[in-house]
Design a protein around this nucleic acid. Structure first.
Length: 572
RNA sequence: GGCGAGGUAGCUCAGUUGGUUAGAGCACACGACUCAUAAUCGUGGGGUCGAGAGUUCAAGUCUCUCUCUCGCCA
């Protein structure tokens, strides 16, 4: 039994995420967590909401609520939706937790002690009317290069020239529209990533089995231009983790908070502590997942994220860990995903384009979405959601291939032999072949799952479902029953057992349907079918079962057309 | 502009270290079956692997040039 630590990139607090966000981190992480639990491994699966930063403050202001209250509410909303998608986090925490405050301050203190923090005085734009410093992208004005009148403080969208906010002509705050801006001097802390560059590169180079997507992004940041740059880790904001050196005041940094990207990954660790607190367990319970000197040396740590998160997880966060000089667990395998596009373009949160998690669940149960998203996960390249493809995949794979198989077996048995597992008849050559092929297929499936080859795993699972239909078609118990009812009983006995095995194998992808199958078959034995021959005879003769409602319904053309239009534009 | 990832059957995608007639699912056509959610199973048609040049006995797979798409540029 292995010990497996899994973290999903933590979703930002301001609003509900779309399906592209889901498939890039939380969902594949959940698949992997469920699979490893099914194999009997000890799993810790962690996710949280990322709550700090200017966008959260602004969203709260827009909602007319104090930011802490807003975040608490949105956390509950996201937690509910995560449950709706059956995301099986051991804990869904909050980056604003006291645990994260303490741990973030602790890391900053360690980094300072190691000489890895430097203080920098810089000029930043302060909005008098907003009463706050403005991040570059919240300042707009006329581009000095091309005259475009909505250039942002960091870049002109028209001529793409990189800008400093102070370059802009007639700058104004995009928060209030105020032009009452002034440049003020402020002091910030920088993490000296440059001095850790070689150490980070050696660490990245040691990861031979990481996806190219992951290592190429990391390499780029290590080597591009002047190489890895030091990074500001503090901000002049109110909402965030106060800058402290451990539990001590940091002179000159009063009133400032850590930058959201500094504290967010630390929440992975803090969240595990939150889990221990919630379980009423001592610190040792979470430390044995994270501290190699406290029992975590046998833990394998997997991270899941979209490609936009890779730099922070391959460089900034490891810099924090390595720089601390303490034996914290570094990631062992980083699985990154490309983007999911929506019907010929991008998902857009601001324009309400595409399907958001809450809307998806209001249309269809989570299994439908889980199946499509995972079987089309953007692993090797960006992939695309279209309603036609979604409809076809769901109807064919789930309803026709799997759902119908369960129907035909259970209904046939009830009509011919009653609602218990029939006892007569012997297995023949066809059954032996089925079992043999199944055994091989399950090995292939498991190999894909262990390699986190999500698409391939889904294809293998589908192939496993198809085997059942192939067998039935060839064995044709509906014909055999007329001349040799005992043979037909043996066939159906095997087929009923097959449904239980399919429930186990399918559960990581479609947990609800799997539970329905298992319940219908009247079993609660989720043991992974390593011994396939044994698993295929697990249900004793006379064991009662029931015919489940149809596992999956089909998506009609009308629904498809309706949804296509509904989600094309502005969110209502 | 720089960097990165891609351009393989109508559609969505696989194609390991270069090696026999380029694969899967869907869609399409035909056939079988009738237990089942008009479901299932089988067979078949369909691709000059973005364009060109090069290396090689041999290239979708390596090199160069060009072209198109997408992303990133703190």
């Amino acid at each position: 039994m292995a010990r497996i630590l899994i973290t999903s990139a933590i979703p930002y607090i301001n609003g509900i995420k779309h399906l592209g966000n889901l498939v890039g981190s939380q969902l594949p992480a959940d698949l992997f967590a469920r699979y490893n639990r099914a194999r009997g491994h000890e799993v810790m699966f962690i996710c949280a909401t990322d709550e700090h930063g200017t966008p959260a403050e602004l969203a709260a202001a827009k909602a007319g609520k104090p930011v802490a209250e807003y975040c608490a509410e949105m956390h509950e909303v996201q937690a509910e939706i995560a449950k709706g998608f059956r995301l099986s986090f051991d804990h869904f925490g909050r980056s604003s937790s006291q645990r994260n405050h303490a741990l973030t301050q602790h890391f900053a203190g360690r980094l300072a002690d190691a000489g890895l923090i430097r203080e920098v005085e810089e000029q930043q734009v302060y909005s008098v009317d907003d009463g706050r410093f403005l991040p570059d992208r919240y300042i707009e004005g006329t581009c000095p290069n091309c005259g475009y009148d909505s250039a942002r403080g960091d870049q002109c969208d028209n001529c793409t020239k990189q800008l400093d906010p102070t370059d802009l002509i007639n700058p104004h705050s995009t928060i209030s529209g105020s032009t009452n801006l002034e440049v003020r001097t402020t002091k910030h802390l920088y993490l000296r990533q440059r001095s850790l560059r070689d150490k980070l590169e050696a660490w990245i180079d040691s990861k031979k089995d990481w996806p190219i997507l992951t290592t190429s992004i990391a390499k780029k940041w290590l080597n591009d231009g002047d190489g890895l740059q030091d990074r500001g880790i503090t901000r002049d904001l109110h909402w965030g983790i106060p800058v402290k050196k451990g539990d001590q005041i940091w002179p000159g940094m009063e009133g400032k908070v850590f930058y959201v990207w500094f504290d967010a990954p630390i929440e992975y660790i803090a969240c595990t502590a939150e889990w221990a607190d919630a379980q009423g367990l001592p610190d040792a319970a979470w430390q044995r997942w994270w501290r190699t000197d406290m029992g975590a040396s046998d833990v394998t740590y997997y991270q899941f994220m979209g490609k936009d998160n890779v730099p922070f997880h391959t460089l900034s966060f490891p810099a924090t860990i390595l720089g601390s000089g303490e034996p914290w667990k570094l990631v062992d395998y980083l699985k990154s995903f490309n983007y999911l596009n929506y019907d010929g373009g991008q998902f857009s949160t601001s324009r309400g384009r595409g399907v958001f998690m809450d809307q998806a669940l209001s249309i269809l149960p989570s299994d439908y979405w889980r199946w499509w998203l995972l079987s089309h996960a953007p692993e090797s390249a960006d992939s695309e959601f279209t309603w036609e493809n979604f409809q076809v995949s769901v109807n064919k794979d789930l309803a026709d291939v799997l759902g119908n198989l369960v129907s035909r077996v259970t209904k046939f048995c009830v009509s011919k032999f009653g609602n218990t597992v029939p006892s007569a008849g012997e297995m023949g050559e066809q059954e032996a072949r089925l079992i043999e092929e199944l055994g091989q297929r399950i090995k292939d499936y498991a190999a894909c799952m262990e390699a986190m080859e999500v698409r391939k795993a889904s294809a293998e699972l589908r192939a496993i479902w198809v085997i059942g239909n192939e067998y039935l078609q060839a064995a044709a118990p509906w014909s055999v029953v007329k001349t040799d009812p005992e043979r037909a009983q043996a066939m159906i006995r095997l087929s009923l057992n097959l449904i239980r095995v399919y429930a186990i194998l399918s559960a990581p992808f479609i947990p609800d349907a799997a539970a329905t199958m298992m319940a219908a078959i009247g079993s609660d034995d989720w043991t992974w079918p390593d011994d396939i021959a044994g698993a295929m005879t697990a249900l004793p003769a006379g064991h009662a079962f029931s015919v489940p409602e149809n596992l999956f319904r089909k998506i009609t053309d009308e629904e498809r057309a309706d949804w296509q239009q509904k989600f094309a534009g502005i969110r209502s």
